[in-house]
Amino acid sequence: MATEKLAAVVRPEYGQHLQQWMAERNLLVHDEALLARLANGADAFFLVTAWRIYQEYGGDKLLNNCPRCGRLARTPRARQCRHCGHRWYEASA
C-alpha cells in the first residue's frame, strides 16, 4: 500500500523524498514472495488473503448469520442482528 501511495504522489520529488524517508525507517517491503502476491494490486491481494484465511480457519464457522434475516452479524459470537434487531441469545437461555 505504501508503494501505491508513493506512486500517487503528484510531484515526483516528493515521492522520492518519501520513499527515502520510509527506506531509512525500514518501512518498505522487501519480501519477494509478498511482493509477488501484491503484483495484481492491493484489492486482489486483500481478496486472496481473505479467502486464504476463510479456508484455513474454518470457513463457515467464522460466519454468523442471523436466523431471521440471514444477514451477517458483526462478529462470530454476536447474538443480536445489527440489521433487523433480532436477538437469538434469549432463545438459548
Results as ranks from 00 to 15, higher is better:
E90K: 12
R25N: 04
V29K: 04
A91E: 15
W21L: 06
R71F: 10
C66F: 05
W21G: 01
E4T: 02
L34F: 12
P76W: 02
N26P: 00
W51L: 10
T3R: 15
W21R: 01
R68Y: 06
E32H: 05
T75Y: 13
A23C: 00
L62G: 13
E24F: 01
F46M: 11
Y54L: 08
R74K: 12
R77E: 08
E13W: 01
R52I: 00
C81V: 01
V48R: 13
A36H: 10
V10F: 03
M1H: 09
V48S: 10
R68Q: 14
L62T: 02
H83I: 07
R11D: 10
G58D: 12
V10R: 12
R37H: 13
N26H: 13
V9P: 00
S92R: 09
V9K: 02
Q16P: 01
A78D: 14
K5N: 08
H86K: 04
M1I: 08
A8Y: 11
I53R: 10
Q55R: 12
P12G: 01
E56Q: 15
E32W: 00
A91L: 07
D31T: 01
A73F: 09
D43P: 02
C69V: 05
D60P: 01
G15I: 01
N65Y: 14
F45H: 09
G58T: 15
Q80H: 14
L38K: 01
H83A: 13
A42G: 07
W88C: 03
P67M: 14
N26K: 09
P67T: 05
D43Q: 09
R82I: 00
M1G: 11
W51Y: 05
A36R: 15
L62W: 05
N64Y: 04
Q19M: 02
A39N: 05
R71Q: 14
D43L: 08
L34V: 04
C66E: 02
L63E: 06
E32I: 04
